[in-house]
Design a protein around this nucleic acid. Structure first.
Lengths: 194, 194
DNA sequence: AAACCAACCGAATGATCGGTCGGTTTTTAA
DNA sequence: TTAAAAACCGACCGATCATTCGGTTGGTTT
């Protein structure tokens, strides 16, 4: 693996575990074996490095969901929604670092000054909400889903699923056993109970 | 206001806006007009200061909810749930700094090493989940709510509401118009659609 | 009035931070 | 083969960080 990629990989882990300000370039240097000069040769400063990490996060998350979307056509809308929720929970486990970065407060703070940062975050959320919305619309057509506003329902649904992932990450309560309740809630929310 | 309280108030704002590592004791000194020596006279170090801030957050949040619980008895379970959700959203606005601290990742990281921190966080979440659970149980008795597990439903419900508050805080999407959808979702989730 | 004490001050300290720079090695391409 | 370019190195820099410490103040107790 090239030094550049090693730096990106290690930075992803450090930024997610220790946050932006909690991550020292010197530590990154130690872990990767790259001199500090090398890091600043590839990335013009710490913020630039973070932006590249976020870009990678965006690309891998979007790729994962695009791939998932292609493997499950020809289902009823509500089944597809349940499928994407299960996939979201699955990803939260396999891409723990990437999700943790998105759950930290720093990126959203940086987004207020950095357009690049903002656009990465918007890409991710737009993609996710679009998927939810499209599947809800499909469910409304095939009769498996009945709601007022697809977009708003998508946002509430996403907030619920992502909230569960957070509860799990923070380890204040064990939300690992909540999968069944989450799916039940989702189904009730989308069908109105039938 | 005593210097000690001024320090606590300013620290609450700085910790919530800039995070733990992003808050400099020197800035705290400038804002409050207290010498750095004075800060360290009242709090033995930065972490200790943070712990006292978190303690205040816990106490004010718990007090608010206790007070709210006393003003709305004699309602049906589902109405009480909807009431506490509305109150939660209301508090997220009036106690913005306190909620933001709880939405940051740092406290949960500190909770892994500091028992004091962990117990503050647990107090808050236990209180909130207990309220949701109690009201769901009440609704099950008066027939306004029908779910399988009150506790798990409480957690899913809480994750949903808190997720909406986060979406709002992060300003990636305007979740301010989601109140009606949230209540609708809540009602469907609790009644199964009747 | 003497002794005491908590609140308060701010200069000083050593560690650590992000970032630079001059130079060396490796890769690329002609 | 060679020259230019890209990758890489690590000592070094000034700024900033949390924390310390010797000393002052004003009120209370003895």
């Amino acid at each position: 693996m090239s030094k550049r990629n090693a730096i990106l990989a290690a930075a992803t882990r450090l930024f997610s575990r220790n946050g932006f300000q909690g991550t020292a370039m010197a530590e990154l240097s130690t872990i990767t074996g790259a001199a500090t000069g090398t890091i600043f040769h590839h990335f013009k400063n710490k913020e630039d490095l973070f932006l590249h990490v976020l870009k990678d996060v965006k690309e891998s998350v979007l790729e994962q969901f695009d791939r998932h979307q292609q493997t499950c056509r020809n289902q009823k809308g509500i089944e597809m929604v349940e499928g994407v929720i299960a996939f979201y929970l699955h990803l939260a486990g396999t891409m723990e670092d990437q999700f943790l970065i998105l759950h930290r407060h720093y990126p959203y703070q940086m987004a207020e000054t950095s357009m690049v940062c903002r656009s990465h975050l918007e890409s991710i959320y737009t993609c996710l909400l679009d998927i939810f919305e499209e599947e809800i619309k499909k469910g409304m057509q095939d009769g498996s889903i009945a709601v007022d506003s697809p977009r708003k329902t998508a946002m509430v649904l996403f907030a619920m699923v992502d909230g569960i992932v957070r509860l799990n990450t923070y380890r204040v309560y064990d939300a690992g056993t909540l999968y069944d309740s989450l799916i039940t809630a989702c189904r009730r929310l989308l069908t109105g109970g039938r």
